[in-house]
Design a protein around this nucleic acid. Structure first.
Lengths: 203, 203, 203, 203
DNA sequence: TATGAATGAGTGTTCATTCAT
DNA sequence: AATGAATGAACACTCATTCAT
């Protein structure tokens, strides 16, 4: 019917941009109201595109959530890896401490997003917990440190899981308390607990 | 107006029984297919009652899930407390070890149910995490043991959270691996990690 | 299970009382929230009886509304007849004026109830409009006055309907305006309009 | 999630057409069976569209009724205005008589629809009665005629309401009688009653 | 007469997904 | 690439009515 107005802005954008805009809109809404409580209609409205455009970039509604999860994990891992580069490769204890410090901060910053992308799906669909690259990085660090004699050898993966869980739990707990969490206290508590747990001396 | 079909006589049961039957049916279905994937229709079919009966006992669909969560927490706590009674009150280390052992087993047994009742709702509705009576019990145990000199004093609540998280994480991780988890190995790993973390000697 | 407490008040009341209490409760709720928006549950709660008791006294939900309508019409008619007795039988003009005055007041007092009992049902069920005893009374008065030479003869029933409608409309309109209606003004306007309409002089 | 059955191609129509078709279907069903007795399912079946399409054009079930009311009032007013154009602007009596004649006919023709759109909702929602444009038109006519000296001055709005009510009541009454109403008799009775009521001579 | 647990058909509303343009 | 009107299966929830006690 109507032919496009000659001077209306071009409606097409690079695919990667559009996709990111949709993901950003979805993430903001999911964080605000929850996944089930957000409709595709709202996502497209948030991204300023039409309904059909969503389905150009994502196959289903679940699909954005999966994309969001992947993006979250990649960014989280990237952040932790970046912080790891501040320490010399063979300063095992410093690297471990640094990892924990960075993880506490990262988790406090991204807690809501973490819960969003990890808690929405039925276990059957959740093949991420078992293949968490962040835990894998930590596991490698622990194994290498043990091999280098920095701390006793053990079940590196299980240790990594427990360290990661301690970070996660402590940050969760602190986030639930009213007021901003005391990040320094948290970092020290986690470091103390986990260093001892791994077999290092307290300080 | 509407006129119901004449039917077999209503079989009245004590309210508490009916409610439990509905909860049992809902729990089984939720564990099997997930909360969102289960309809109230299926729940009532599972409980052998009519649709309206559900709404005599629960206000909304979410309502059963809340009831299930309360029941889960109460039973989990009860189970851990019962196991605690096997140890003399002042055998602090034995009680701590026993708590961890029991918690690992309980968590492995009830992991799916735990995830179900804790991961389905938006954080806003989830005021249970911050007031977890199981963690509170553990926190009390840790504080008392420290006061008795069994281990160094520390932030008991945070320590409890980290121990609980380590149990939770380790059991989670083991559950995700294929095959039945090696419970003994898990218990020993958790005990070793957490005893050291709290400041005890490894053995 | 429980045997009745010996000193609890007797639960039975004279049928007519119970029925009236149910009707009163229903009327209050209908006026407040509307017929469709009121449930039988609320009615019995309002009357302080159990659900089943409602169905001892009324066959269906519509049934109370019919009872309410009959009661309304009877009371309305009674009220107008009572006011008519203040005038000597052959003071036709005074009786007509009195009827209109009383009707305006009665209608203003009971407008909501009138609308409730007359507007809720599909025309098919509404065999009341055509057999309105209030209009019939007025129709008789008009016919008799005409026969006595107090005013010109005409289609007494149609005149009665128009007078009744004028009362109804004027009162309705005044009720819709903000603030309490000026009853005297209304009465005079209706009397003037209808007296002239019937063929009387203005004053 | 849900996946719709592949179906025949959606046939897009101009929104105004679709909306009117939905309204027409709803009106026919409401007139036939009543508002409460008609389901949205039946409306969409009548309009030949899918259930969801209804909710593209109307927010709730009540919403069509409101749209129907607006359409009714607009058309009724339009019809009366059109009939008014047959008379020279300053033939006040002829215009008044013409208005009443047209109103009686219009009301007889549309009685069921009038009742439908005005009697289905609780007074709280019914802010139309007090702002009835048809009465407003008549009120203006009466006021202008009085100013021009065609009849005595009075409370024009109240007079308009009473004239409108007399039309409404007389037509209602005639519709309730068995057999087709004697329209000529009705028109003459209403004209006579109201002309006198306003202060004109009978003929 | 009075109860109230149980019923289940009925219905308004949502929303992920499609596809002709 | 982008659109947005149309879809229709699915579902939570209501509530008038019944009947064994």
């Amino acid at each position: 019917m109507r032919s496009p107005t000659p001077n209306s802005p071009p409606r097409t954008k690079p695919a990667e941009i559009r996709r990111e805009e949709l993901m950003d809109a979805a993430q903001a809404l999911f964080l605000d109201k929850g996944f089930n409580e957000t409709s595709v209609d709202e996502i497209v409205k948030g991204a300023g595109v039409a309904k059909g455009t969503y389905y150009v970039y994502f196959k289903t509604k679940d699909d954005v959530l999966a994309a969001l999860r992947e993006r979250f994990v990649a960014r989280f891992q990237q952040r932790l890896r970046a912080s790891g580069e501040h320490h010399p490769p063979h300063s095992w204890v410093a690297r471990l401490d640094g990892w924990m410090e960075a993880a506490v901060h990262a988790y406090l910053d991204e807690r809501a997003l973490h819960d969003l992308v990890f808690h929405q799906l039925h276990p059957a669909n959740d093949r991420l917990h078992q293949a968490n690259p962040v835990v894998d990085d930590l596991s490698a660090l622990i194994a290498q440190g043990a091999q280098a004699g920095a701390w006793p050898a053990g079940d590196a993966h299980l240790l990594a899981v427990m360290v990661f869980s301690a970070v996660h739990g402590a940050a969760d707990s602190a986030s639930s308390d009213p007021g901003p969490p005391d990040r320094e206290h948290l970092v020290r508590a986690v470091q103390s607990f986990c260093r001892l747990g791994i077999g290092l001396s307290s300080r």
